[in-house]
Simulated assay, not measured.
Amino acid sequence: MPDVCLYFQVHQPHRLISPQNDRTRLKPPYEDDALNREILNRVSDKCYLPANKMFKQRIEESHGLFRMALSLSGTVVEQFKKFRPDVLESFQELVATGGVELLAETYYHSLAFVYSDKEFQRQVDMHLDMLEENFSVRPRVFRNSELIYNNSIAAKAETLGFEGIIAEGTPAFTEGISPNYLYRAPDTARIKTLMRNHTLSNDLAFRFSDSAWGGYPLTWEKFTDWVGQSPGDLVNLFMDYESIGEHQKAEKGIYEFWQKVPEVLIEAGSQWVTPSEAVSIYPSLKEYDCAKVTSWADAERDLSAWYGNAMQQEAMAKIRELEPKIVSCGDPVMLATWGRLQSSDHPYWMSTKGGADGDVKNYFSPYKSAEEAYRTFMDALADLEYRLQACAVHA
């Protein structure tokens, strides 16, 4: 029976206000506070608070045998502080049990590694500082936004002092090697790569309540059998925290499932381990040479979710173009605004893919179309660039 590593991503972006052709409505940070508050309240009541309570009970009742990991973006913590400090306190209480490991990432849940090494490192440092300030922890394992990964990212994470890094384990890139072992990237000396078991993770995150799915209904007994049939050291279950109660509704039995699974897997012989514990316990099986950039998004599992069309490419090129102007201006409000605009959600909402990928994007997007997402984003960037020009004149 393999052991199990459970990790959840916790993230909310700062959604933007639409100027509706009235540029006078625009001013940094261009955020729709009413919409951000509404969504955060809904997800907090359906997911964050009840899930935190449930997992806290599972950790305490198992005397610490059940363990898990979370990655909280800087933007979601900002919104907790602004709109729901009770939810931040709930996460702090969960972490204080000692059964939850926090992972490092980019503060703004951004694509910074793709376009700026300096900005990437700045955001990682910001995120580490945020975790230390709010949770008094310093992570040992790194997960890049949307599990964006390749050899270079693993090497960079090692230079930053991390002992482990998270990657997607889709067969299209792993060439048949099992995700249920730890690996090492070429030209690294110490850091280990943990691969997401995408099949079992997506059974929980996406297919759980799909009555047309062959595995429906997914019971804890059935899932325990599937884990037991997965050869290897470790089954890595990585997914959005919002899959509990928000994407997979409470009335479909998702809470009953998670209340039972920790105990059932322990009884079956699995050990729950956190990512840093996995790095300490298990050897790296062999080298995982991943030259291409991978992610956990869309069917392609690459960067096409954010760079797949001309709108997305133009938007990200403009973000990159503004970096030297932002740095030279030195205005902390403009720097924070530019940072928040780097959240990967903004170009993702501009995707024009169809099929299942398009359905997922439409579910998450606050816009009626990719074109509306693009116009709203570019209006904010245009106003920011105008203000940067004024800053340069007065410098």
Rank of each mutant, 00 (worst) to 15 (best):
269 G>A: 06
310 A>M: 02
101 E>G: 10
286 K>H: 12
228 G>S: 08
148 I>V: 15
21 N>I: 00
267 E>S: 14
352 T>N: 05
260 K>L: 14
143 R>D: 00
51 A>L: 14
370 A>D: 09
257 F>D: 10
317 A>Q: 03
259 Q>I: 03
214 G>Y: 00
215 G>K: 03
151 N>E: 05
196 R>M: 06
158 E>T: 10
384 L>F: 09
199 T>G: 06
130 M>V: 12
253 G>I: 13
136 S>I: 02
375 R>L: 10
130 M>R: 13
362 N>M: 14
369 S>C: 02
5 C>M: 15
330 G>A: 13
370 A>N: 07
366 P>W: 07
331 D>H: 08
175 E>K: 09
325 K>Y: 13
117 D>L: 15
35 L>Y: 15
110 S>C: 07
223 F>P: 13
59 I>E: 11
70 L>R: 01
123 Q>D: 11
68 M>A: 14
286 K>T: 15
153 I>D: 03
348 Y>H: 06
8 F>I: 10
339 G>S: 05
234 L>Y: 01
329 C>G: 09
216 Y>V: 04
60 E>C: 02
109 H>R: 03
310 A>W: 00
203 D>C: 07
303 L>V: 07
363 Y>N: 08
240 D>G: 08
10 V>T: 11
90 S>C: 13
376 T>H: 00
278 A>T: 09
12 Q>V: 00
31 E>P: 01
354 G>E: 11
31 E>L: 10
44 S>G: 15
86 D>R: 06
231 P>H: 10
364 F>D: 00
60 E>T: 11
1 M>L: 12
378 M>K: 03
295 S>G: 04
352 T>S: 06
116 S>P: 12
348 Y>E: 05
333 V>G: 02
172 A>W: 00
35 L>K: 12
73 S>Q: 04
20 Q>N: 04
67 R>C: 09
389 Q>E: 15
209 S>L: 10
236 N>I: 09
325 K>Q: 14
278 A>M: 09
392 A>M: 12
35 L>Q: 13
108 Y>E: 13
43 V>M: 12
335 L>N: 11
144 N>P: 01
143 R>L: 10
312 Q>M: 01
198 H>G: 02
165 I>Y: 01
168 E>C: 15
310 A>H: 00
35 L>T: 14
256 E>I: 09
146 E>R: 14
